[in-house]
Design a protein around this nucleic acid. Sequence first.
DNA 1: CTGAAAGCGCTTACAG
DNA 2: CTGAAAGCGCTTACAG
Lengths: 356, 356
Amino acid sequence: MSHDEPVNGVPRHRPTMRDVAALSGVSLKTVSRVVNFESGVSPDLIARVRSAAQILDFQPNLTASSLRRSDGKTKTIGLLLENVANPFSSALHRAIEIVARDRGVVVFAGSVDEDQTRERDLAAAFVARRVDGLIVVPAGHDQSYLATERRNGTPMVFVDRPPTLLDADAVLTANQVGSRDAVRHLISHGHRRIACVGDLASISTAAERLAGYVEALDRADIAKDPDLIRQGIRSSEAAQEAVRELLQLPDPPTAIFASQNLITIGAIRALRAASRHHQVALVGFDDVPLVDLLDPGITLVLQDVVGMGAAAAELLFRRLDGDDGPTERRIFDARLVPGGSGEIAGPWPTTNADRA
Amino acid sequence: MSHDEPVNGVPRHRPTMRDVAALSGVSLKTVSRVVNFESGVSPDLIARVRSAAQILDFQPNLTASSLRRSDGKTKTIGLLLENVANPFSSALHRAIEIVARDRGVVVFAGSVDEDQTRERDLAAAFVARRVDGLIVVPAGHDQSYLATERRNGTPMVFVDRPPTLLDADAVLTANQVGSRDAVRHLISHGHRRIACVGDLASISTAAERLAGYVEALDRADIAKDPDLIRQGIRSSEAAQEAVRELLQLPDPPTAIFASQNLITIGAIRALRAASRHHQVALVGFDDVPLVDLLDPGITLVLQDVVGMGAAAAELLFRRLDGDDGPTERRIFDARLVPGGSGEIAGPWPTTNADRA
DNA sequence: CTGAAAGCGCTTACAG
DNA sequence: CTGAAAGCGCTTACAG
């Protein structure tokens, strides 16, 4: 008796529709009808098939069915994040999952780690498994490698950063406006020597936030001091060191704009180490957990991460439902939330409104 | 001319091996050999096939190949987390991803949200897509629904909480020992009225941590006061309220053991609201971000989340590689990291060592 | 209402 | 070294 020979009608491998058909004495097609809730099967046969399926604990093979099915859908999407473990990425993941779950769609997630090779490899791995769509926080500056896939009809939505050399939907934050508001807030509290500490200028969000900083200074007729602009900061440790150096300048800044959450954390540590956290103002872009428990609380510019994730998923599913209108770009506002650190007064005159 | 008719040899649908074969003038089987780097194909044919594949931008369909392939592997695993957005879950996800990536395996991740129906549904969704293995942080108290799948040969590893009514590998934290050490630490600093604030007793980790609290009190001959034991706390808000109430007792606790990170956060807020954060000692189980920036810093019992994730993934892949030894249970120590809040002295005599 | 045949995109098991 | 036939587990397109 071979390994696959049935024992008491129970096969010795994972049961298939063939096994259910054999046990219930109907054709394969009838089993398929019952499993897929197609109408027009007699109650008697439905009962026999269900009973056999239960006895065998039959679980339909979705990958086989989507291979043959005319729509070809796998009920699977792929999510390329910066790093699944960082709070921005995981909040995005969560928001997308909730929308996907309602549609019976399951999510592949992976980290790109700001590495364009990983981005390509991960996208290829998802495509090889025939995901129905992709949601991408891109790392590289060339998404043309996705052009064929897009022509093949796979919808894709970019989040946080727009695609480059590829026409596709995107859900973004108004980084420049948010940053301009943050710096204007500092100016209105009497600051003119304001430092800007940011990530690599090659990352579009970092570039836009720097532009917002510059715009606010320009509007207030404040000269830009290159000593106060520190870019290319890649970790909270690097940010801590950068702020330490800033504080030791002959004419140090009275306020700091930290253009990303890891940088904000480094800035907080540096200010505390120098015991300047009650003297030097700080506004950070992006959320940082538990800052309301710090003294002073930290003033932050918050992105609507959950809204962006939900919007990206809804846009993706709209495309999957057949919407082939022109490429969309949804921009979400970032909102300044005073916490204490951004309201520390500077040595220059303060203004009533943030509209300095 | 039909939609699928080739135009200049380029098909108007996603290219398949058939298309590559037609364009390069070889058989389907030869294309398969080249794509899979099988040996024994003449250099001439390899070149022709590669060239055709590139012209068409051919991307092999991994789901089709795994359907036919004798090992049936999809190079995909499923990860059931409590909530992809919480730091414990996402750190676990990250550690698992790193191991999986080295093996060309891609990860489905989903949130179970402490809901056993979601747990079953999500596991079924992964199984329907024929994942090679499952890593599960279970919510429910009956994993027998996975028994057939396990008999079908799908390896599965449980993390943080052991499986119930199912024999399977597990990677766990020594919750009781870690909690006992935490409470002993408080006792050694002069505390005897120590509150324990914890999650639902039905969650195994919460039950073990309560047991550790009880064990430490028993060993020190301290009577257990039911007023000081608050279980079933499900959010940081509930924890804040519970601690607020504890502080208003006629004979309030001088120290608090918070058995989970959300609870620790609630406890911090309640102590600050009552201005008792420099008087009442606090030790929390699980990591809480940025607590080193608080005043006082918070003493925590830390789990080795990254180690646990890596161990779970490695165990899973070992099983996938054919290891069918007996079920394993790996226990990771939790380690107490003093931060300040746990070293606030209580009114009773202090002891030299934690070995009170 | 039911089922036999063909085929989704690939690999297996052979034959030459 | 190369390829024609069969089949993975399903659905499609028919026929009865």
